[in-house]
Design a binder for these strands. Structure first.
Length: 242
DNA sequence: AAGGAGTCCAACCGCCTATGT
DNA sequence: GACATAGGCGGTTGGACTCCT
């Protein structure tokens, strides 16, 4: 049978959004709220795919969006989160108020990925010459080498399959604050066992992070709702950020 | 000044999960 | 439980811009 396309692409605008389209979309979302993206274009009178509208709103038109000027703190946090989570851009973005997954993904691909690679190259085999060293790899090269941050892939748990929608807050167990900017609550709630895959291993809490003796358990115990920027930056990770 | 190479980033694509019926 | 649909995510592309020779 196959999936039906998200919308008929015939007669739809593609490519860069015009200021007029932005205005229509912004006003429509402000008036009617987010959601029902698929028929939003019809209702708003936009010749765009619903997905495209959603993307445009979430990444550029939302009023709380910060753009550009990623600070050193944010950069450091992105690196740390990427080390923990791999390419889980939406989760990473959820910890950076006003930042979008797309922006962080782009920033990583153009800046941080290179930094981390360079750091690893220089710290490991200085004698090995990497053709991509010193510049950003072409996309085809990146795809071939898409070992997230080179060497950390074994730490990454593919959480996509365990996304949860139920949230149970136990204030006694988790007295910390909840991030008000969190737009991905379904994936990183303050939880009471519902989303945490492994509650049994001995772990050492650090600012809301539970760190087990080995990295795999560490990731399994990783509780996305339990840290924020300041917590993470203040955390004393035992190894270096790379 | 020209043009090729490199870089950046907005946008699209396809797949997956969640949800409703 | 099976199926259809909507929303969400990560990977990738393509074009505009900048840099270098």
């Amino acid at each position: 049978m196959g999936r039906s396309p998200c919308c008929s692409k015939e007669g739809l605008n593609r490519g860069a959004w015009t200021a007029h389209e932005d205005k229509i979309l912004t006003e429509h979302v402000k008036a009617h709220g987010e959601g029902r993206w698929r028929d939003l274009p019809k209702r708003a009178g936009l010749k765009r795919c619903g997905k495209s509208c959603r993307f445009r709103w979430l990444n550029y038109l939302r009023p709380d969006i910060k753009r550009g000027n990623i600070s050193a703190d944010e950069e450091e946090l992105i690196i740390r989160l990427h080390k923990l989570l791999g390419n889980r851009w939406s989760l990473i973005a959820g910890r950076l108020p006003g930042r979008t997954d797309n922006e962080i993904k782009n920033y990583w691909n153009t800046n941080l990925g290179k930094k981390v690679r360079d750091h690893q190259n220089s710290s490991t085999a200085a004698s090995k010459h990497n053709k991509s060293n010193g510049r950003i790899m072409k996309k085809s090269d990146q795809a071939k080498q898409q070992e997230p941050t080179g060497g950390t892939s074994s730490l990454v748990v593919r959480t996509r399959a365990i996304k949860c929608s139920k949230v149970f807050i136990n204030p006694h167990q988790y007295p910390q604050k909840i991030d008000p900017f969190d737009r991905n609550r379904e994936a990183k709630p303050s939880i009471d066992g519902e989303c945490t895959m492994n509650q049994t291993s001995a772990s050492t809490p650090i600012n809301g992070l539970s760190i087990s003796e080995n990295d795999n358990n560490f990731m399994l115990d990783f509780d996305m709702g339990e840290f924020c920027l300041s917590d993470l930056l203040n955390s004393d990770f035992s190894d270096s950020m790379y």
